[in-house]
């Protein structure tokens, strides 16, 4: 059974529909890249998948393998301003919180898990720094470490490399590729960085207020929507999108 399946999902803000006709499944081991123009509803879809917003119509069902508090998430915008006093370790371990349920304090296991994920992303040296004073790339790594603390089998990343320099973005994608290669989780990544993000993905979901394409990466690159969007359709006369 799929981790998540969307059947005819549409999403709306106060009656104003921004996204319709979404049909796709997230299976264990998938690495789905969600692409589309600004305002096409990618972040809104992420909200739906995360149950932050109910779908206006259609159904989003969750497989047995997916418990709601075992989802990792990186929001599109950095959560707090530079003046927010939050230490890196405090931020990372807060990912373990949902699993605590009604237990008030973190267990030894949680603390080890937080340290393990910080080591994995090479941010252990930042442990005592203030989150707001880190660079964009460092913040993104911290948020990924937090997401890994809360993620069991699903990771949802909303434009995790926006604002990173090409080297930092490359590093970030390498980390995601490495996570994916372990095969024990599904990754849904929203990205505008079509070239690099697509190279690691297994599937592509292309949306533009409705679903334009869902399928394997190879099929997407060969499709009309894919050729146009990735700029590989220039020889067929389509104007390249700047």
């Amino acid at each position: 059974m799929a981790l998540i399946s969307c059947e005819g999902v549409s999403m709306a803000y106060g009656g104003h529909v921004v996204l319709t006709g979404i049909n796709f499944n997230v299976e264990m081991g998938n690495y789905i890249c969600v692409v589309g123009e600004n305002g096409s509803g990618k972040s809104t879809l992420a909200k739906g998948l995360l149950r932050l917003m109910p779908p206006a119509s259609g159904r989003i069902t969750y497989g047995d393998g997916l418990v709601s508090n075992r989802v990792g998430y990186i929001p599109q915008r950095s959560p707090a301003g530079a003046d927010f006093p939050a230490g890196v370790y405090e931020v990372v371990i807060s990912g373990c919180l949902a699993r605590r349920g009604f237990m008030p304090f973190y267990s030894k296991n949680d603390r080890q898990n937080a340290i393990y994920n910080m080591k994995r992303l090479d941010i252990e040296s930042l442990k005592d720094k203030c989150f707001g004073e880190l660079s964009g790339g460092q913040q993104q790594r911290v948020l990924l470490a937090r997401a890994l603390c809360s993620a069991g089998s699903l990771l949802i990343l909303d434009e995790p490399t926006a604002g990173l320099d090409p080297m930092a973005a490359q590093d970030f994608y390498d980390i995601i590729d490495e996570l994916h290669s372990r095969g024990d989780m599904a990754i849904v990544m929203i990205s505008h960085d079509v070239g690099r993000a697509l190279s690691g993905a297994t599937h592509v979901l292309h949306i533009g207020c409705s679903q334009e394409f869902f399928g394997a990466r190879e099929a997407y690159l060969a499709s009309a929507a894919g050729r146009k969007f990735t700029g590989m359709g220039e020889e067929s006369g389509a104007a390249p999108d700047a």
Partner: peptide, 23 residues
């Protein structure tokens, strides 16, 4: 406050993430 300290931190720092992970 002491019992819910960690949750209070989480909803103060990033309410959306807290919600998304089931807090």
């Amino acid at each position: 406050y002491v019992l819910f300290y960690n949750k209070i931190f989480a909803v103060t720092f990033d309410e959306t993430f807290a919600r998304a992970t089931g807090v």
